[in-house]
Design a protein around this nucleic acid. Structure first.
Lengths: 136, 136
DNA sequence: CAGAGTGGTCAAGCGGCTTGACGATTATGG
DNA sequence: CCATAATCGTCAAGCCGCTTGACCACTCTG
């Protein structure tokens, strides 16, 4: 279980690198998940990641520096700044989904017919309300 | 998948705390796994965890300080020091297995009959050669 | 309109990890 | 045999992600 999750993370990581995104870490993926959902502020990301807003801020700094995210003023709150994905940012999320699908696809190929569906069904049944939804 | 693994880790963590072991982190569990296998040196633990021997050394320092592990000279190599679990250390590993079983048991209770077995079968079929073997 | 609450940032510090260098001991090959 | 290389563990310095604490600007509430 834990080993499986670790292999999934590592597989996504290397798949991302193979697709030209070698400057993103797994933690960035969870930030992407919230930002791509739209209407995201620094505080939103912090809560979604379960870290302090300072930690979220510097993580977002990295995404901005690397060209994945932009900050623009929030028209409804002069304190806040809205986060948006750049074209490169959306490309990155697509690459992540593709990389994840690749790993899961290898699992499907290795399992006897039907057993993969059983695995997926069980994982879905157990809720999986977590971030970084994997495209089963 | 990732959310499931995270909940497993968190569940073990809090289960450990409930059993009186509130000073061990997940990383310690992987060190325990290697040490309890026997004939473990600092370098063995480092390789098993995938970190440098310095990092392994300070992690083991914590386990020694907290009374889980002892270091004794290796009779076959004057450079090395053999790691051994103290009684408290073995009690800790048993508590971890119990806590893990508790989490997995909750999953079994929540899944329709047979679906849990399918999940377990799939996970086993995918190898799961990783550390910290969960007692399914 | 005063007060509390919230969004974001600056600053300092901690913990886990790395690289680099080192003495001590053990393995290897001429 | 013995010189050389490899390995075990440690000390030292530094990086990086994260925390706590404090603060200002702005917004909400009564």
């Amino acid at each position: 279980m834990l080993g499986l999750a670790g292999r999934l993370i590592d597989g996504i990581q290397s798949g991302m690198a193979a697709r030209g995104f070698d400057d993103v870490r797994p933690a960035h993926g969870f930030a992407f998940a919230r930002i791509s959902a739209g209407d995201a502020t620094n505080a939103d990301v912090a809560e979604h990641l379960g870290v302090t807003k300072q930690a979220a801020s510097q993580l977002i700094d990295q995404l901005v520096t690397r060209g994945y995210v932009t900050r623009r003023p929030d028209p409804r709150d002069a304190r806040a700044r809205l986060l948006e994905l750049t074209p490169r940012g959306t490309a990155c999320t697509r690459a992540a989904e593709s990389a994840a699908a690749e790993v899961v696809g290898r699992w499907r190929d290795r399992l006897p017919a039907g057993q993969f569906d059983a695995l997926r069904a069980a994982v879905v049944a157990l809720g999986e309300p977590g971030p970084l939804r994997i495209p089963w």
